[in-house]
Design a protein around this nucleic acid. Structure first.
Lengths: 158, 158
DNA sequence: CCAAAGAAGTTGCGTTTGCAACTAAAATCT
DNA sequence: AGATTTTAGTTGCAAACGCAACTTCTTTGG
């Protein structure tokens, strides 16, 4: 780790932290108010939507959807109960299960998105110019890449 | 709400979102590894530390610590059990309870902080230049202010 | 001044999550 | 091949949180 944390970075972190939680809570509240499932559902469904053949291994999905593996197991349980995804076995490796997005899953994704987008548009976008958005994307792309669990092997805070 | 969400803002949001969760999870893991309480404890204790006389009403603390009131009640239960804070009645308004930081609470704060700081230093700061930090602080100060619950009365995503 | 409305905090309950321990299947190593 | 290690996923358990309903106290309004 870098032993000295400059003042400026600390202040940036604190505002970042508070902003995230407040936006997150507001969007979740909007989703509840709209009778839609929460962001964790969206995250999982969306990652599957992006994936080749709209399916991912449980492990991969856990990583993409920012959950522990046990957390993902339960989330997939709930999604499967609602027929939004299906568990599919893998012939080549019988340990593996694919989470496969269903058509109904795609529909739900399409229902959630307008509410989610409205939240981003209301709570995040108005405070950020186009240039700033580009700046944020650049910075956080670096952060997200460095924090990818696949890259984090053993690292900790050194 | 602004009906159209520009591509750039959306991409910025997604990276922002992923970065936050990954950093947050990493710091929480470091805290567990160091035998320290979680960030929600830090947030509450720190807000009390900053407050005049090191105390806040439950309501105020809930807002500062980014929790619902019921969530805060339980958190304060746990903090009080560890003698890190005390509930103090308010003579002027007998509905009100103050959460009062204790000396032991301050000590715990001092124990958490190095681990927390190391996390910020490792996971956040290295990817952000001083100029970028200033930029981030400016942007997120606006966001956080706009999303302050006190300012949000009735607002929703309009 | 008394009733109704509002505000502060707590509690019951359900949801979601992570850690540690577990099962099952593949890979590795004699 | 047979034993060990590693990997994928699940499960028991407990922690943490939010919503809605509730109690208690204050404020407001007739």
């Amino acid at each position: 780790m870098k032993p000295n944390l400059p003042e400026g970075h600390l202040h940036a972190w604190r505002k970042f932290y508070v902003s995230f939680w407040r936006i997150f809570a507001a969007i979740e509240a909007d989703l509840v108010a709209a009778g839609q499932p929460s962001l964790s559902w969206y995250d999982a469904l969306y990652e599957l939507y992006l994936a080749p053949e709209r399916r991912l291994r449980m492990n991969e999905l856990a990583r993409s959807a920012l959950l522990s593996r046990s957390g993902l197991t339960r989330l997939v349980d709930r999604l499967e109960q609602e027929k939004l995804i299906e568990r599919k076995t893998c012939p080549e490796d019988r340990r593996v299960l694919y989470a496969q997005l269903t058509e109904k899953g795609v529909e739900v994704l399409r229902q959630i998105w307008p509410v989610y987008r409205a939240g981003i548009s209301s709570y995040f976008a108005p405070h950020v110019s186009a240039a700033e958005a580009a700046q944020l994307e650049k910075i956080f792309t670096k952060v997200a890449a460095a924090m990818d669990p696949a890259v984090m092997a053993g690292g900790k805070a050194e």
